[in-house]
């Protein structure tokens, strides 16, 4: 459900950038969404279709790059993807880890006309 406010914020951001570039319309929006955020692309698309009506971004293609939840072991410094029910390092079995990826939620670029 947080997708509604997230989509609105994303649309405001995109329209602001398009206006700065004096673009007439937005053809594509490239988004980076971390797995950990729980943001569902399908929901974003649903809200986007509704919210963007009548704006310069209406009909823009949404491209989602989903980044996995990635951790770095504080013992052996190796990086790995966080398992679903196992948060120990697969290399040294340490359980002191740092989350280094998967929290992303940003607009990487837009394609305008």
């Amino acid at each position: 459900m947080h997708e509604l406010s997230i989509t609105q914020s994303m649309l405001d951001l995109v329209l602001g950038e398009a206006e700065k570039a004096e673009a007439e319309s937005v053809a594509k929006i490239n988004l980076v969404i971390g797995e950990m955020t729980g943001v569902v692309g399908q929901c974003v698309q649903f809200y986007f279709d509704f919210l963007s009506k009548g704006t310069a971004a209406e009909g823009a293609l949404l491209n989602f790059k989903v980044t996995p939840t990635t951790a770095k072991c504080r013992h052996c410094a190796k990086k790995f993807e966080l398992g679903e029910f196992d948060w120990t390092c697969p290399y040294c079995k340490g359980n002191n880890i740092e989350i280094v990826g998967g929290k992303e939620l940003f607009v990487e670029s837009i394609e305008v006309e």
Binding site: I6, S9, M10, L13, V14, E17, A18, A21, A23, L31, L105, F106, V107, E108, S109, I110, E111, V112, E113
Partner: peptide, 10 residues
């Protein structure tokens, strides 16, 4: 035309 944005949605 592609515009680099790299801005946090929130």
């Amino acid at each position: 035309m592609e515009i680099k944005v790299v801005k946090d949605i929130l």
